[in-house]
Nucleic acid binder design. Sequence first.
DNA 1: GTCTATACCTTGATAGAC
DNA 2: GTCTATCAAGGTATAGAC
Lengths: 198, 198
Amino acid sequence: MFTVPFPARLSASSIIDAAWILLQEGGQDALNMRALAAALGVRPASLYRHFENREALVRALAERGVLELQDGIARATQGKGPRDALWAAASTYLNYARNHPHAYALMLFGDDSAQTSAQGQSAAKALWNTLLKLVGDLSGDPDDTDQAVAFWTFLHGAAMLDRQGLYGASGPRGGLDVGLTALLNHMETAGGSGDPSS
Amino acid sequence: MFTVPFPARLSASSIIDAAWILLQEGGQDALNMRALAAALGVRPASLYRHFENREALVRALAERGVLELQDGIARATQGKGPRDALWAAASTYLNYARNHPHAYALMLFGDDSAQTSAQGQSAAKALWNTLLKLVGDLSGDPDDTDQAVAFWTFLHGAAMLDRQGLYGASGPRGGLDVGLTALLNHMETAGGSGDPSS
DNA sequence: GTCTATACCTTGATAGAC
DNA sequence: GTCTATCAAGGTATAGAC
């Protein structure tokens, strides 16, 4: 008579926590409703009382990842000069992507890993604004989209190549330092986007 | 009596051609054995006489993509000076990724889009050698791995962000030009990897 | 709110007739 | 070499009892 379902065994946050672990350890494939239910000691059907479907769950995970990464960047850049802040942001970004490869992919690619996804757009916008401000602090142009695009492009490329192990056994070596140095130098010397006429 | 299976309706190359179209139009999801058989006017089981399994087919497609891209770069850079050649290579690379987004992903990510894949490694190595040589021609160091890593990182990042539509409605704007300019300038001025002691 | 039970779908792949 | 027929495995999701 004390096996009535109170208090609830599940909650949105406990599900997200378990799902996050599954994602972290086995990627998207490991993140399925059966495995998730098993990890929580519950039946798959029970999950649908807390999340309408798998997509909603994935959305919540992506949001969590973006907030974590943004928070990490904010903390790493606090109190630093423009150039140091950008360097710290890059380092934080790449470390996060390396330590949470599946979450990083989930944030930017969403569910399918093809085409544009809603949470990908949202995550991208959030990260974009974060990086844009930092870049503006160095280049002097508070809306230096071109330099910010270049910076983000480089970071994302490094995150993805690293994630797939495509740098090979020797890793990126000094390539990331070299690239970042080149981009930051260019920001400092070039000032704005390079086309003041527009 | 003339419906005997000669001459064969299928061949490895006709299958690859059809698979390439499916991949191009619908991505990996559209590339399944049923759809492929239907596109060829044949039953799914018949495909297994020509490819041991789906993975072998994907491997062949990845190989085709790498060759196409390498060939395009070779042609675009031919007869150009070092800096122009690198610029042309970048342009060709990004155009290829934009025009064949699914094939590009297949080449570098392989089947699953998670973890390291065999054809990903192979494709990466092939592209790497192509880019390494071009970079060496500009920087002066024939084995300037750091600069080549930076260059490739940027290209891959641009290809992936573009592919996912994450640059937003306004696109990368001048960001790609800015980034490439920064990297090429750095190659010219910095000479080697920057650590002649190693 | 969780359970049992199951429907339903989409895959890749195979056996054996022709 | 292609066919019919079918299996096995994996997934999301729902109805209705408790």
